[in-house]
Design a protein around this nucleic acid. Sequence first.
RNA 1: GCGAAAGUGGCGGAAUUGGCAGACGCACCAGACUUAGGAUCUGGCGGGGCAACCCGUGGGGGUUCGACUCCCCCCUUUCGCACCA
Length: 864
Amino acid sequence: MAPEDKPVTTAREERYDAQRIEQKWAERWQSDPSLYAADTHPTKPKYYVLEMLPYPSGALHMGHVRNYSIGDALARYMWMSGYNVLHPMGWDSFGLPAENAAIKNNTPPKQWTLANIAAMKVQMKRLGFAYDWSREVTTCLPDYYRWNQWFFLKLYESGLAYRKKSKVNWCPQCATVLANEQVVGGMCWRHEDTPVEQRELEQWFLRITKYADELLSDLENLPGWPEKVRIMQQNWIGRSEGTLVDFDLGGTIGPAGSTITVFTTRVDTIYGATSVQLAPEHPIVKDMITRNADLRAQVEELIAEQRRAKEAGDIGAIEKHGVFTGRYAKNPFNGEAVPVWVANYILMDYGTGAIMSVPAHDERDYEFAQKYKLEIRLVILPASTDPEETMTAPPLPFTTMDGVLLSSGEFRGLSCEEAIRKMSARAEEKGFGKATVTFRLKDWGISRQRYWGTPIPMVYCDKDGVVPVAEKDLPVILPDNVPITLAGGSPLMNVPEFLHTTCPKCGGPARRETDTMDTFVDSSWYFYRYADAQNDKAPFDGAKIAYWFPIDQYIGGVEHAILHLIYSRFWTKFMRDMGLVKNGEPIARLFTQGMVIKDGAKMSKSFGNVVSPDEMVSRYGADATRLYSLFAAPPDRDLDWQESGIEGIQRFLGRVYRFYENYARPHNPDWRASLSAPLTGSARQLQRKLHQTIKRVTDDFQGRWHFNTCISAVMELLNDANRRMLGSEDTQSPATGALVEGNEIPLTLLAEVQRNIALLLAPMAPYLAHELWEMTGEKSNLLKAPWPKYDPELAKEEVVTAVLMVNGKLRSRITVAADATDDAIRKLALSDEKIKRTISGKQLTMEPIVVHSPGSKLVNIVVR
RNA sequence: GCGAAAGUGGCGGAAUUGGCAGACGCACCAGACUUAGGAUCUGGCGGGGCAACCCGUGGGGGUUCGACUCCCCCCUUUCGCACCA
């Protein structure tokens, strides 16, 4: 090797300076706004990768960084794999915190929000996330929310938006109504200590229940969704097949009528019904108790009790109470009159708010009947019961469907399943009931008595009633400079210029709806807007949706499993029925990442364990921050943030950098030459390691997304390469790091290793990877450089370690050829000195077992 | 109560299909280079034992030549649902 071919050795003091490198590349990237733009005339296959858009609270937190690091790694990998990638970002920017900030700082919500967006965008750019900012969506701006209003009009036209007075959830802290989905264990989803109250209000609802069946059944078509999320949605929808049965009260009681309709999933047990139980808030109860002050007081106590339990979040645990109303209702199947009770364990908002009580075959009814000494009547015999021994009935209650009806008139002897079918049919035929399906899912109440949201585009006219705003008059602009208070009703009521308008129908004076929309409306379709963000004629162009949808990969926290993700699915189905889109589901694959925790608790202000991304970036760099968030845990698990861990990653990046610094020789003509002759010895081993590493990283990007193991694979490769480059101790001073004469690693191989490490790190640590790419003399843009391919032949081992076991215990190891036959391996194993010692004096009980696994072999010798 | 996931060194975590338990990193220990080291490099690092060896993946049983991995029972933690008729 000629002296000038010796690698340029730089001073060891030349350290990895993340700030310098990241500054340099950030400037280059930002000078080209089209760098991350999706191709609008695509010839390549598409890939739409999306991370949940943030609420612009003012600063990113580590959960965001983790979320976006995963998404960005995937987007960059897909670019390198030759896809036309759509990777957008936006702001879920309506919502209460802006109003709270307005009160606190005396800053208008708009100003506060837009300033936060600007600040967070700077953070995102500093972190190097590759977003197509030309498609940015900001939900609080009229060019977005006008389409919320447009959709609302379409929903109204289709009868899917309606107004109704009803009991609604009210958070006194937020001073607004909440959707059912926003009530968590009786508490407000934003204020975990604030019990939700019930208020009677006139509200706008979206008829999500129209799609209840489809929302449920289509879960089957989402194999790319986590099982957990599908189950949560399934439970939330809560489909339940059953029967409605009318129990006659023998004369009209009051305005609410003369019958009680009960809902049951087990009509087969109806001959065992010994009472009817009503929810305390059932309308007919009022009519039953008007003349009895004592009864009235007791029922009021039941209502209060239920409310308290609901607010405490432990409904389900309260002790069962009830009162007898003095009335009887007739069971239409056997004509028997059973007592009517009011009980605190009956919920008004499920089924009909009335049940038939069958103590022998329902645990709750059993408990209640025991307490109040109501009759318990066995009407099902489990199939396992011996008919000869009917006297020894099984312990009550039992709820098995695997049984036969007993004492049930003409239905006696039928199986439960058959009985349910026949009895439902009978009820319908005789006109006292029918088979039915109920859902737990309720319509989505979207009215909010708040300022910072999309105005609902409706007008109230004394002459024409409720009138929608004309499409051409959209958007209904949310006025600026509105005084914000948390007292009484929407702040918009106090803005005369907004409130007073003219009726779109008659032109007479009218007033506007002053409630605004739930912010979950904004996020129900925002991802469609990314496909056509500049469109001012329509929310989007259908052809563009047809190309990009469904979203190939959506990434976010599991806390949105129900709220956002069920609303989004509903919105898509509605748009499909409008003919606006062709897909019935918005998201093909969903990934829910784990939380970021520290010191055993979720990072939160209240716990005081928040780590600021800005601080991490300025201390360790964006690459280290991102890479650590990928390295510390598999992405679906919780991540335990440890400062020392990110230091380790920073050291690793420093080692990578020095590996290029120390061995950089872009002037060598051999540098870019490809390897020709087959390698041997140490070089061959390094080459093998390289190809194995490419395989491991590629497999993970395509499969499990265990970036932690990807990164460790690259670490191993680097360690291996460094060791081999340093050579043996006697010829090499570790301090200088210079290549030495006689080193077995050809420069072409070294160059190949360096090129590939840059490629493998490109999705996860983009700044450094770009710098390294340049250091190797590459001129092309790493962002779209082809992802490396491994050669299975080169990855293959030629000799492998065979593990020798005796009776399943490790005893020795030998090296054998990778293609050695089982017999040859057995022979070698049995002649191994250690093995001979271990098995001397014992008998082989069977032929030694030989196992081939990738990269190794195993022999188990069974002796006695 | 129901459902789901998890439990592996001092710590984060690896072991992709039943086949070398502890990869990789952190922390720690020793050494090198140094005026210095919170830089860098080298080596060590589950427990016990001088050693041959023995023990070890929450606990107990089982299947198997072989179990972190499969089956049964139990314990703990986290999450979701919770009187849904």
